[in-house]
Design a protein around this nucleic acid. Structure first.
Lengths: 339, 339
DNA sequence: TTGAAAGCGTTACCAT
DNA sequence: ATGGTAACGCTTTCAA
């Protein structure tokens, strides 16, 4: 723990009570607007509280009352991606409407950090958990929380081996739509630039690609599939490698917004850039004319928060697994059929 | 005595102690790795804890021990802007290295929501506060926290009337650099598209513009200054209005990244777009060739967290007000001098 | 090395 | 309508 700190000397309920000349319990009742307090007593207590700058100690309250706190904890894996912010923002709005506060911790794709953040929430007895996980297993949650009834919803990435609700995108369907579109434009050599191969999201998107190609009986050239390009500059290199192949792809599918940004950078100064399509929204994609499989992080946040609220309010029953739809948005980057 | 059931059936330290066949205090000592516990006793306690899925209740611990919690609360005003995420991410990394957790709450530019989030943190007795405020006054913080020693650092926006540390950008200097650059390129009719006029950041940036123009003895045409375009689509309309003027500007300065995105959208299909320069980084600005006054939200987060840590560790003394530098990055959008 | 008791600030229960 | 007392789960203090 951290070093010693000067005492903060915040007033307690007892001091408020003394100042107002009432008992501890009466002060408590007055400040909580409970019944059976004379209006003038209540007024006197509230003035005393204001004068002293009193603030309830929620640690003590939650400890005693066993009421779950009004905080929902959210863990996001990657804060450098506005995509996850959009989820958190939407979720926060839904929760705020119910008087719940959303506090967000960042794991930065580090499983240990994620465990620490979740522990922090759990040990402070939050009312529920929203998790964009960077893990494939969840011993903490298995051990006693999610499975003993801590309301929990996984977002964007599945909860492996855990009986909890989840909200994911239709990654397979979205990828298939992207590839089908490229095939329809006449492309047969289709490159793919993907994020970390360990990410379930990535895997599903790749699965969609393979399925689309298989159904169209287009042979798969593994050299055209680059994976583990975990940031924009990795994607940029990946794109350069693809274009330097003896027989380069005529179209490239980037599996998320960051891969798209990197890929784009690599072709920005190219004479004959390949057709380009991405997954996820991309800022300014409209101006740049980039086709995408678009999804709605806001919907994900909203839906996840709603499901969490139901659990917090006592909903029982089996896990629910929601798949949110995606939408193919065609722009300049794939508008021209291959000759 | 019947053993009580903890909320959600979580085991308590007492149950761990009973399972291990030791006293409450011994269990506490063992789990906290304090001295004076026989190794084998310690081992037995830890196994019991693991078997039961024990988690310490930090509410109880912090309540009793008066140790400040290991949580720092951060409030951000606008989560739809990746800029603030970048600040939070950097701050979180600095704090994590010291064993502190950063929890972030979003106010969405709503002063009441900000107050609620701050109350939530305060009432949970966080170790410190990082605040990107949407308020101009801070009665809560004045009343007893910031001024009684709750470590607090304001980021990006000043702490009006509050004696706390702050880290801001050199907004005036950055704007002046942008305008000086446009003037050097021969522009005399310079438009400005700004965010909410109530935002101090915005005001400072406008002040920088006026100062640069005044020093160059270029008369100010108020019709060219559009303000309160608080989102990208507002900025887009603003840009269209500017271009529709009888005597439109030859260059436009957008005072933040969102204004830039909107302005850009408006000129995307224009034959003779005005010169364009923005403030703040903008995703893909390099590809789009947009000049910017660039700043580093990561530096802001890092610096702010460092200053907060010093306060948490007991640093006394007057408030410190840091101004972080900006850098002019010239790209295609302002590369051509006006004929 | 270990344990019993007190207490943190609050709310719950049972009186008055 | 108001108040005393116990209790929440933990750490601190002091004793064994």
């Amino acid at each position: 723990m951290s070093t010693h700190i000067a005492p903060r000397g915040l007033p307690t309920l007892r001091q408020v009570a003394e100042t107002a000349g009432v008992s501890l319990k009466t002060a408590s009742r007055a400040l909580n607007d409970e019944a059976h307090v004379a209006p003038e007593t209540s007024e006197r207590v509230k003035q005393a509280a204001a004068a002293l700058g009193y603030r309830p100690n929620l640690l003590a309250r939650d400890l005693r009352s066993h009421s779950t706190s009004n905080v929902v904890g959210m863990v996001i894996a990657d804060a450098s991606n506005p995509f996850y912010l959009a989820i958190a923002l939407a979720a926060g709005q839904v929760l705020a409407a119910q008087g719940l506060l959303l506090f967000t911790g960042v794991s930065d794709e580090d499983p240990d950090a994620e465990a620490r953040v979740i522990s922090g929430f759990l040990e402070r007895r939050v009312a529920g958990l929203l998790i964009v996980s960077s893990r494939t297993n969840h011993p903490q949650l298995q051990q006693g929380h999610a499975e003993r009834g801590m309301p929990t919803v996984f977002l964007d990435r599945p909860a492996r081996g855990l009986e909890v609700d989840e909200v994911l995108f239709d990654n397979v369907g979205g990828s298939r739509a992207a590839i089908d579109h490229l095939l329809a434009q006449g492309h047969r050599r289709i490159g793919v630039i993907g994020d970390l191969g360990s990410l379930p999201t990535h895997r599903e998107r790749i699965a969609g690609v393979r399925r689309a190609l298989a159904e169209a009986r287009v042979p798969v050239d593994e050299d055209l599939f680059v994976t583990d390009a975990h940031d924009a500059s990795g994607a940029e290199s990946a794109m350069r490698e693809l274009l330097a192949l003896p027989s380069p792809p005529t179209a490239v599918f980037t599996t998320n917004n960051r891969m798209a940004a990197g890929g784009l950078r690599a072709v920005a100064d190219t004479a004959n850039p390949p057709a380009l399509i991405g997954f996820d929204g991309l800022e300014l994609a409209d101006i740049l004319g980039i086709s995408v499989v678009s999804n709605s992080p806001a919907d994900m946040g909203t839906r996840g928060a709603e499901m969490l609220l139901e659990r917090i309010h006592g909903r029982a029953g089996r896990r629910r697994r929601v798949r949110l739809p995606t939408e193919l948005v065609v722009r300049r980057s794939t508008a021209t059929p291959l000759e």
